[in-house]
Amino acid sequence: MKYLCLIYQQERDWEAMPQAEADAWLAECLAVGRGIEADGHHLAGEALHPAATATIVRVRDGRISATDGPYAETKEQLGGFYLIEASGMEEAVRIAARIPSARTGCIEVRPVVEFDAETSVDDGR
């Protein structure tokens, strides 16, 4: 089954980190990513630019609205994700616990609804 591991971290902590510590943190993140890949669980993953670079898109009454900035002010911002393959939630949680941000932020693990050509939208709820 596929799981999305959403990585949340306080951006200001990253920005305040001394360069040597930031380099070590990034090296650890990359090593964990390589380990998840080597274990055969990695399907995709990316880091994201800061939340301030986000654009929020809404369509209301047929009109498109685009607003700069994150959706809401939160303590922790979405910084990246892994899409993984795991046998169940228990294994997905063990994999997510390896991500360094689990120690200082949090990792949200969510099962992915997998649609096929015969699946209707109602089947995915």
Rank of each mutant, 00 (worst) to 15 (best):
E114W: 02
S87A: 03
A96P: 10
E118W: 12
D122N: 12
E90L: 06
R110V: 15
V93K: 02
S87I: 05
I84C: 05
R103C: 07
P100D: 05
E118N: 15
V113E: 11
E85H: 11
I99Q: 05
R98A: 00
A92Y: 00
A102R: 04
V109T: 10
E90Y: 01
R94C: 05
S101G: 05
T119N: 07
I84A: 08
I107K: 13
I95K: 00
V113S: 14
P100T: 07
A96K: 06
S87N: 10
S101W: 06
A102D: 04
S87L: 02
I107P: 08
A97M: 08
E118H: 13
E85V: 09
A92I: 07
T119I: 08
S87F: 00
A92H: 03
P111L: 07
R110Q: 08
A86R: 01
T104F: 00
V113M: 11
C106H: 07
E108N: 13
V109H: 02
V113H: 10
V121P: 14
E114T: 15
R94H: 04
P100N: 10
S120Q: 14
P100G: 06
V109A: 02
A96T: 07
A117S: 12
I95C: 01
A97Y: 06
R103L: 08
R103V: 12
V112D: 08
M89P: 06
G124E: 05
A117I: 13
E108T: 13
E114N: 14
D123W: 05
F115R: 01
A92T: 01
M89N: 03
E108A: 09
S120D: 15
R110C: 09
I107M: 01
C106Q: 02
D116W: 11
V93T: 03
V113Q: 09
D123N: 14
D122M: 11
T119H: 13
L83V: 06
R110E: 02
P111A: 11
I95V: 12
E118P: 11
P111Y: 09
M89F: 01
A97T: 06
V112Q: 04
G88P: 08
G124Q: 06
G105H: 00
E91N: 04
T104Q: 03
D122A: 09
G88D: 12
E85N: 08
R94F: 02
R103Q: 04
D116N: 15
R110D: 04
I107W: 12
R94W: 00
P100K: 07
D116C: 14
A117N: 07
A86Y: 06
T104M: 04
A96D: 08
M89G: 00
E108W: 09
V93Q: 02
I107V: 14
F115P: 12
C106G: 11
G124R: 13
S101P: 13
G105R: 10
P111G: 09
V109W: 00
I99H: 08
D122Y: 02
V113R: 13
A97W: 07
E90S: 04
R98T: 12
A102H: 10
E114H: 11
D123R: 08
A117Q: 14
E118C: 11
L83G: 08
